[in-house]
């Protein structure tokens, strides 16, 4: 069963890579961190994780804290993280909270 788990995790990674390729905007940023997210996705996730407000972090704050990223690439990262189940939207589609609270 361990073997089966590994193969399904691998498949998920391949699918997500494909998704990013189709979406385009990542350019040379194919660097993957240990948890299978790109550096940009990880930054977005960490900021959302770090937000103490009950309604979560809103998109505007995210944009202000990631001045080197474009709105489109932040949106992409948010969409990806939300599809993977790492984050979810709260009061409206601009507020996000993390599911991976330790």
């Amino acid at each position: 069963s361990k073997c089966h788990n590994q193969s399904s995790a691998g498949r998920a990674l391949i699918i997500s890579n494909k998704g990013m390729g189709e979406a385009g905007n990542f350019g040379g940023n194919s660097f993957m961190t240990a948890n299978g997210l790109s550096a940009a996705q990880n930054q977005v996730l960490n900021l959302i994780k770090a937000c103490p407000r009950p309604e979560g972090l809103n998109f505007h704050d995210l944009k202000n804290q990631l001045p080197h990223m474009t709105v489109a690439s932040i949106k992409q990262a948010v969409d990806f993280l939300s599809n993977e189940g790492h984050i979810y939207s709260t009061v409206d589609d601009d507020h996000f909270k993390s599911t991976d609270a330790e």
């Binding site: 788990n5 399904s8 995790a9 998920a12 939300s82 599809n83 993977e84 189940g85 790492h86 984050i87 979810y88 939207s89 709260t90 009061v91 909270k97 599911t99 991976d100």
Partner: peptide
């Protein structure tokens, strides 16, 4: 809000599905 609970539950399910 029900919406938040539902989104959270859906997100946790997706996360769990990834980790199985």
């Amino acid at each position: 809000l029900v919406r938040i609970q539902r989104n959270k539950a859906a997100a946790l399910l997706r996360l769990a599905a990834r980790n199985v």
